[in-house]
C-alpha cells in the first residue's frame, strides 16, 4: 500500500491453467460432507408433502392436527348455522322474540325425525317451548339446503350450548323427507299437525 499504483500499459500474456490435482483426502472429506447433508435432508424432508410447513415436521403430525370427520360435521354445521339460522335463533341458541330457543329445547333434543321434519317443511303458529309460547314462522329449508347440510346443522345444534344428543346423518333426513312426501304435507307444520305425525318422543 506504500507506493502509488501506476497506470501501466504493457500487455500480459493470456493466462493458462495448471494441472494440479485435487488431493484424494479432500475429495473424500467433501464427498462425506455431501453424504451427511443428503441423509439429513432425507430425514427432514417430510416426504416432500405439500402441506407440511415449519414448525411442523411430518405428514403424520399434520394429519393428526386435522379435525376428525365428526368434528368437521359440527364445524360445517356451525358455518351453516351462522349463515342461515343465527339471525333468528341467535349465536347462543337462546332465540329471540317470536323465535324459540334451541338450547335445551326438547324439540331439538328428542325425536330426531320430528326435528328433521321441522327443518324440511318449516313451522308456523303458536308452539310451546320450555314453558313459554312462541308464535313465529319458520321457513322451509328443503329447497335451500341439501339433506346432508340439514343433517349437519341439526348435528351442530344438538351438540352445542350444552346440548348433547346423537348425531343425525344425511340418510336419516332423506328418510324423513320421503316419509313426509308420502303423508302429503306441503305447507309448514303447525304444532298440532306435528304432534300428530310424530310422537313426543
Amino acid at each position: 500500500m506504500s507506493e502509488e499504483p501506476k497506470l501501466s500499459m504493457n500487455e500480459h500474456d493470456e493466462p493458462v491453467s495448471g494441472n494440479a490435482q485435487m488431493p484424494v483426502g479432500v475429495a473424500v472429506v467433501l464427498a462425506l460432507l455431501g453424504y451427511i447433508g443428503c441423509t439429513k435432508v432425507d430425514e427432514l424432508n417430510a416426504n416432500f408433502a405439500s402441506n407440511v410447513h415449519f414448525p411442523f415436521g411430518s405428514p403424520i403430525e399434520v394429519a393428526s392436527l386435522a379435525p376428525s370427520e365428526e368434528q368437521l360435521v359440527v364445524m360445517r354445521g356451525k358455518a351453516l348455522y351462522a349463515k342461515n339460522c343465527m339471525a333468528c335463533h341467535q349465536a347462543n341458541g337462546g332465540g329471540s322474540g317470536v323465535n324459540p330457543p334451541l338450547a335445551n329445547s326438547p324439540y331439538v333434543l328428542e325425536n330426531s325425525e320430528r326435528l328433521s321434519a321441522i327443518l324440511l317443511k318449516g313451522l308456523g303458529g303458536p308452539i310451546e317451548v320450555l314453558g313459554k309460547t312462541y308464535n313465529g314462522a319458520m321457513p322451509a329449508w328443503e329447497s335451500t339446503l341439501s339433506d346432508v347440510q340439514i343433517a349437519e346443522v341439526l348435528t351442530y345444534i344438538r351438540q352445542e350450548w350444552g346440548n348433547s344428543a346423537s348425531r343425525i346423518t344425511g340418510e336419516e333426513v332423506s328418510k324423513v323427507s320421503a316419509k313426509i312426501q308420502e303423508q302429503g304435507q306441503s305447507q309448514p307444520w303447525t304444532e298440532p299437525e306435528l304432534s300428530e305425525a310424530f310422537s313426543a318422543e
Binding site: N104, G162, N163, S164, A165
Partner: peptide, 27 residues
Amino acid sequence: LPAEMNANQARLIKEASFPVTDGSESW
C-alpha cells in the same frame, strides 16, 4: 325425566373430555 337427564348427561360427557397434556410436550 328427559330434560333433567339430558342436562346431566351433557355435563357428565363434558367432564369426560379432559386434557392429557399441558401444552409442553413436543410432537
